[in-house]
Design a protein around this nucleic acid. Sequence first.
DNA 1: ATGGTAGTAATACTA
Length: 264
Amino acid sequence: MTTPLRIASWNVNSLRVRFEHVLRYLEQAQPDVLCLQETKVEDHKFPAEALAAAGYPHQLISGQKTYNGVAILSKHPLVDPQLGFTVPHPAGLDDEQRRMVAATVSGVRVFCCYVPMGTAPGHAKFTYKLQWLARLRGELNQLAATEPVLVCGDLNVALGELDTWDAVSTDGSILCHPHERMVLRKVMDWGLHDAFRALHPDERTYSWWDYRGGAYPRNRGFRIDYVLLSKPLLERCVASRTWADTRAWEPTASDHIPASVDLS
DNA sequence: ATGGTAGTAATACTA
């Protein structure tokens, strides 16, 4: 018997604004690994020393000015770090958007993803979203689903009826369009399982509430932040949860809350 | 009720 490995993911919507919240969450949840999205900070401004002092000396960061930005913080060494996709872009284009990093931690290949939101179905950014997810599937195709693989992050898709505050009124709109659901399913068809849904098949839980329209006080949320596990990791998964209290933290919290798994 | 709020950075742009 050993202590489970806790791996968490959180879209913080600016690491510099949310820095105190991140420290508070690390102290409270004590994850072994925290994957961050929307850090919105260039690498040379990343608060690396302060996070190392908080117990997370192993860091993989890929940021940019203003938008996007992802990072992995870890108590344990990060092996084979990867910045973005290794599989070339299908059209030969360079994607400047910093949306994915990956590393192996305690034998687990961890992908930290910030999937494009897509603006609205039919929009050019929606096409980019679908292509980005297809490229993620291509990346996974390089690996074997019998390996311990974890894909987490803000996936910006609400997969099912329990993952949206109102399945009828949100159906077909962004986060809930059949095309994006189908493409995320194709990613998962590689051999990934939604850890939270596997352990809580009937639980209605959200991970994101829009700042606008009083969505949080009205509980108009969506579950769009996931931890996906390959089968050998699903068999080791003893807990999967979200951390809803963070959404009410002051000052203004991220519009997303963390999601985590515990692996025996 | 295609609005609303938040972050970045400088009047929009993205979410």
